[in-house]
Amino acid sequence: MFTLVFRIPAEKEQLFTAHREVKEQAMQAELRHARELKEAKAAAEAKLDESLKEYTNSIAVLRAEMEEETVARKAAQDRLALLEAEQKEYDRLVLQTDALALRLFPHSQAHAVNKVAERRVEQEMANPDAPWDPYDHLVALSARVQHMRSVDRHLADLLDVAIQICKVLWPKEPVPANITLTTNRLKHAGRRIREWKCSAARAGADAALRIACSWYDDLDLDAFHSLRADAPTDTDPARTAKRQDR
């Protein structure tokens, strides 16, 4: 009994000590938990702030990229509109130039039509008889240019020939200095040739009279104002042929 009385306080003291230790451990655990919770909360807040910053930066980058894309799209649209306008103007100039070339060189039309037809056959067009598009007019213009080059080569020779004709028809006059003066001179070529014909006829008649007068001293030149009717040299075929052979 005495032993039991002394044991109870000792056990009570042990229980009190154990309770105090447990309480201290619980308090330490609570403090540790609070500290860890605070640290976790701080870490979470920091992580959240970092995520928010990254999100904000991503949004800013995305917005900048979208703005750049918008600017690039607008620039591309403007460039496309400019190219379309330039293409329309180019097509208009091609049609206008081809029409002018046709008016200046109408004989080139057949060659141009053949070239356009050849191009349409090569392209295997579904409707080869469709109206010409701007590219067809460009092909036609190229064909006309080739035709004009061919004509131009002949025109270069034509100028030399024209100068030679001027030298022959007007041997005592200076050669015209340019193509305009040469053209103006050649406008009178018909009259010059008629003058030459008359001069040649007079020279031939004078030569014939000289020959006749050299053989017949008493020849009456006043009688040669017209042909004699029923002259043997006109009525006799043999004598006519002999006269013509002379």
Rank of each mutant, 00 (worst) to 15 (best):
A99Y: 01
E195P: 00
L82E: 13
Q77L: 14
A208R: 05
E68N: 10
L219V: 08
Y90L: 03
L155C: 03
H147A: 13
R191T: 12
A85R: 10
L159E: 12
R79L: 14
K74W: 06
V22D: 12
L209F: 04
A200M: 10
E11F: 15
E36N: 09
T56V: 06
R243H: 02
N178S: 07
S51M: 11
E50I: 01
N114Q: 12
E89P: 00
P176S: 04
D222Q: 13
D236F: 04
D129W: 02
R239W: 15
F2H: 14
A75C: 01
R32S: 13
E122N: 07
A212E: 02
T233G: 06
A241M: 15
V61G: 05
F224M: 13
A101M: 15
E68D: 08
A34T: 10
L4K: 10
E11L: 15
V94F: 03
C166M: 06
P131N: 02
D98F: 05
A43N: 05
I8Q: 13
D133A: 02
H154T: 08
E13G: 09
I165N: 04
D236V: 02
K41F: 11
P9Q: 08
D220P: 00
V5R: 15
S108D: 05
F2Q: 07
A201Y: 05
Q14P: 03
Q244R: 13
E39H: 08
F6G: 01
A177F: 06
H225I: 03
E122R: 14
E124Y: 06
L219E: 06
Q25L: 15
I8S: 09
R63G: 07
F105L: 08
A177P: 06
I165D: 10
L80R: 09
D245I: 02
H147N: 09
E89D: 06
T180C: 09
R144L: 05
A143V: 08
L83M: 10
E124M: 14
L209P: 02
L31T: 07
K12D: 02
A110G: 10
Q25V: 06
R149I: 12
K41P: 01
D91L: 01
A238I: 12
H111A: 13
D152G: 12
A117P: 00
D129G: 03
R119H: 14
R63K: 14
D78Q: 07
A60Y: 01
R185Q: 06
L15W: 15
L93F: 11
L37H: 11
N114A: 13
C166S: 12
S108H: 02
P106C: 05
E65C: 04
L227Y: 13
E195K: 07
A44N: 09
P9F: 08
S150C: 03
F16I: 14
A10Q: 11
E24P: 01
V94T: 14
K12G: 05
W132N: 04
W170S: 15
E69M: 09
W196V: 04
Y135H: 04
R243D: 07
V22G: 10
R192T: 06
